[in-house]
Structures are given as structure tokens and as C-alpha cells.
């Protein structure tokens, strides 16, 4: 009950944010937080819940972005029409890539996913149909509302919020289903899970495909908002890493972890760039890098994990100070 009440308050505040902070840049910042939260939450399904650290998720992001821009560039359709196509491509690619690579454990899977993403980037860079290195653009002037090309960030904000809620809803449903149960078992110990009869390979594959499809939606939304995609912005390794660090920073494997991570990192990035970037000394990234290092060093489980433990400690305070104190040690 208490949880539900807090959830409603938080939701109300998120809905009210762009009205409280109404300059165009603040609204856009809010929209970007939600956009990256969608991508990081999608990543969280396979990276957090299934414990399979994909460093190549940008390949699905790119599928969505290219499908959306391709629908416009080649068929003069609304970029929205590309969304289902992007999801389809992503799920197929996830299946093809996932069958061999999900057998690999830990770092091998990570490296294989990097290689897949780099391969995709290189192939697209040399494919004229996909705009090669020049990239694909969306409609320069919106023809109608279905082009989703707005001056204000407000419509994007609420669109992204709706999709984020759907993404989190799907994630929540998944964690409470049989798949979620299996995933937890696999993450703890794959061998044990297998011996107890959990279909480990199949479960991981399903999670990977689900994650891929949702990531591709984030990619399509990104391309529609910025009206452009090229190999670097749609398939660059940095985007994979961003999804990962947002989820890890907020708390991987926690429902709201990626949202918290995005809500910290996106403003940090944009504001430090706004304040320091113009000096041209690269200080933005010195600050950004230092903060990431500090969080990894002192809070490896993510921010939300820390808050959660603090809360537990606070609740249990009277009777179990000693126990909570020891569990808090990093």
C-alpha cells in the first residue's frame, strides 16, 4: 500500500516535471532522460536480470533507428511505420546472434556482442541503401503529426514516458513470471538452475530477444527526435556502453535502476558539457569519468542499491543495528 502511494506520488511528479521546469532545454533534458531510461531498461532485462552483459546492444538500437529513418527515406512513410520493422529485425538478429553467443559465459559473451555491433557498424558504413557513412535523415519539415517531428520537446516527453511505463511494465511482468524465476536461478548459478530442470539456454534467449525488441523502439524514438542517424550515432560502441553504465550506475537488475542511472547521467553529461564543454579543454569528460570511477569504486551495486540498503537499515534500526552495519560494508 505504502509502496503504491509512493509510486503514485513519483509518477505525478514525473508527469508534472515539464510543466514545472518549462524552458525548452529543461523539457528536452527530461525527454532525453526518459529516452535513455527506455534503452537502459531494455538492456537491463538481459544485462541486469539475466546477468548476460551485452556490450553490443547498440546493434538493436541501430535497427530501430535505421528502420524508422528508412521508412521515411525510401518509402516516404511516417518514421513510426518503421518501428515494427525495427522490432522484427532486432528480434531476428537477437535470435541469430543469441543462439551461439549465449552459450558463451561471462566475458566471452560480452566480447562476442562487441564484435557483432562493430560488424554491423562496418557493414552499414559500406551499404549505400542505408545511407553508408552519410546516414539517413528524417523529414526536414514535418508533413503531418505522424512524422513525430516537433519543435517542442513536450510531446516527446509524454510519448517517451508512456513507452517507458510500458517497458517497465513488461519488465515487471517478466520478473514475476516463470521466465523471471528461471532468470534469477540462472543468474545465481547456471549449473544449479540447469540441474533443477530450468531451460537455461531458451530462457536467456527469450530475455535477449525481448530486450532487443524494446531497445530497437528506443532507437526508433531517438532517430525520430533528432531526425537523423548515421553509423556512428546509430551503431557506435559508445551507445552500448552508455546503456550499460546507466543501468549499472542506477542499479542493474532492479526495476527502476536504469531510470535512476539515466536521471543522474544524462543531466550530468548535458550540464557539464554546457558549463565546461565550450572551453574546449576536454574537462567535461574528466569530470564525467571521475564521477563514474568514484561510483564504481564506492558503490559497485549502483545508487539504488545503496538507497535500498540505507532504507532497510533505517527500518530495522532499533533491533538490528549490528547486522545492518556489517551488511553495509562494501
Amino acid at each position: 500500500m505504502r509502496r503504491l502511494a509512493w509510486l503514485s506520488v513519483a509518477l505525478a511528479l514525473v508527469i508534472a516535471y515539464p510543466l514545472l521546469f518549462s524552458t525548452p532545454f529543461q523539457q528536452r533534458l527530461g525527454a532525453l532522460v526518459l529516452l535513455y531510461a527506455i534503452a537502459a531498461s531494455a538492456w537491463n532485462i538481459v544485462g541486469g536480470y539475466a546477468g548476460q552483459v551485452s556490450v553490443g546492444h547498440v546493434v538493436f538500437f541501430g535497427c530501430g533507428a535505421y528502420a524508422a529513418m528508412g521508412a521515411y527515406a525510401h518509402f516516404a512513410l511516417s518514421p513510426m511505420v518503421g518501428i515494427p520493422a525495427g522490432i522484427l529485425f532486432s528480434v531476428v538478429i537477437a535470435a541469430v546472434v543469441g543462439v551461439p553467443t549465449l552459450r558463451l559465459s561471462g566475458h566471452y559473451f560480452s566480447m562476442a556482442t562487441i564484435a557483432v555491433a562493430e560488424l554491423a557498424r562496418l557493414i552499414v558504413t559500406n551499404t549505400d541503401y542505408l545511407g553508408a557513412a552519410v546516414g539517413l535523415s528524417g523529414p526536414t519539415v514535418p508533413r503531418n503529426v505522424f512524422d513525430l517531428s516537433f519543435i517542442s520537446a513536450l510531446p516527446y516527453y509524454y510519448l517517451f514516458l508512456a513507452i517507458l511505463i510500458i517497458t517497465l511494465g513488461i519488465t515487471w511482468w517478466m520478473t514475476n513470471s516463470r521466465i523471471g524465476f528461471y532468470l534469477r536461478a540462472i543468474k545465481d548459478s547456471e549449473r544449479a538452475a540447469r540441474s533443477l530442470g530450468a531451460p537455461a539456454s531458451r530462457t536467456k534467449l527469450y530475455a535477449y530477444m525481448l530486450s532487443a525488441g524494446l531497445t530497437s523502439v528506443a532507437g526508433a524514438l531517438y532517430a525520430m527526435m533528432f531526425g537523423f542517424v548515421d553509423p556512428e550515432s546509430g551503431l557506435g560502441i559508445l551507445i552500448s556502453v552508455k546503456m550499460l553504465i546507466m543501468a549499472a550506475l542506477g542499479g542493474a537488475g532492479l526495476l527502476f535502476g536504469p531510470l535512476v542511472g539515466a536521471a543522474i547521467l544524462v543531466p550530468l553529461e548535458e550540464i557539464s558539457n554546457s558549463l565546461l564543454g565550450g572551453k574546449g579543454a576536454g574537462l567535461t569528460f574528466v569530470v564525467y569519468g571521475a564521477i563514474i570511477v568514484l561510483i564504481a569504486r564506492f558503490q559497485p551495486g549502483g545508487i539504488l542499491d545503496l538507497i535500498k540498503r540505507r532504507l532497510e537499515k533505517y527500518r530495522k534500526a532499533p533491533e538490528t543495528i549490528v547486522a545492518a552495519g556489517t551488511s553495509h560494508a562494501p
Binding site: R2, W6, A10, V14, F21, L259, A263, P267, I271, L311
Partner: peptide, 22 residues
Amino acid sequence: MKFNHVVGFLCAAAVSLALAGQ
């Protein structure tokens, strides 16, 4: 309980932005 922190971060971010823009 954790959601007010989320909102807290969002608000803090927005406030610093507002300051930066003046």
C-alpha cells in the same frame, strides 16, 4: 520510498540548469 530520490535527482538537475541558464 525510493522514488522520491529519483524525483530528487531530477529536480536537482533541473534547478542547476535553471541557474546555469540565467
